[in-house]
Nucleic acid binder design. Structure first.
Lengths: 155, 155
DNA sequence: AATCGGATGGAACACTATATCATCGGGCGA
DNA sequence: TCGCCCGATGATATAGTGTTCCATCCGATT
């Protein structure tokens, strides 16, 4: 997802965001975040586990799920429900404690698997308005748009 | 989800929609659709399997997943990704063959689990516009809004 | 030192979904 | 009528995703 330099920068910003919030970005959590950020596409928990085992042979499913829960909780990553996979947040650290994340949407390419996060306020507003008309109090909205990315659609 | 009479009506309409499209709503598929429609909330595949076993002791996971695939394919049910569960479509049969469904959104209550399907054209348009700006060709969009339903928010 | 709480280690298990091969039965042409 | 094809179903096994539970470690506090 990110080049090495950009990844280091993102990790550093994550550390600072956690520090501000009184959350501990431990070496394990930081390492899992790094693995998510270096993946090309959204990455599954067990793929992360395999990679994590290179550095931590004893790692088991709860190891990675606990780290993922922390990162989700603090808005550093998102889960892509349609793929059962995780991706770095393009806008990490811009929330408050226990804010599971800002409104966002994903564009998921069927063909190449590339997944892009977008932040479209018109979509967010339309959702907020529709929910309000139903008397519904929104805590979080999942918007996952599947189709063909520009590159694959052209091909 | 539906009272007995409304359920019968929905099943009958599903039969007619399938007939129009040259699809076979076999007894098994009809039975699974009935189980989905009579559930209070979105229902998981294995919960359906348990109920199906009452009538068909030999039923196994593929039995129910194949039926669900057919029903999804023909727009008679939807999958709620956040819950890994299935729910009847509120607008069944209004599509064409291999049209996996019209634009729709879900309101999922965290507290009581009630899940309502809504069809909000402003949301659909905002999504289409955002995708188009990215050169993305949409085939299907998942919109799942989690929070508190009007009843639970009032309590 | 005693204790308390968050983080991690580790085994087992629960839940969700798919692969694979066999069988059945209706439609259809030779 | 026979043989064939093909979609649907039966049945077993396995893959993939996520959780529960208990133990341990370690730093902070008292």
């Amino acid at each position: 997802m990110l080049e090495a330099a950009a990844r280091e920068k993102a990790l550093h910003e994550a550390e600072q965001a956690c520090a501000r919030r009184g959350a501990q970005l431990t070496p394990l959590r930081r390492q899992v975040l790094g693995l998510v950020l270096e993946a090309e596409s959204p990455v599954g928990a067990y793929a992360l586990l395999d990679r994590l085992k290179a550095a931590r042979p004893g790692a088991a499913p709860p190891t990675v799920y606990r780290a993922l829960d922390f990162l989700l909780e603090h808005g550093l990553i998102h889960k892509v429900e349609r793929l059962n996979a995780y991706i770095g947040c393009s806008d990490a650290g811009h929330g408050h404690a226990h804010d599971h994340g800002h409104p966002h949407q994903f564009l998921i390419c069927r063909r190449c698997g590339a997944t892009a996060e977008i932040i479209d306020h018109a979509v967010a507003h339309a959702i907020a308005a529709a929910a309000e008309r139903a008397g519904f109090v929104v805590s979080e909205a999942t918007v996952e748009i599947e189709g063909l990315c520009a590159r694959c659609a052209a091909a």
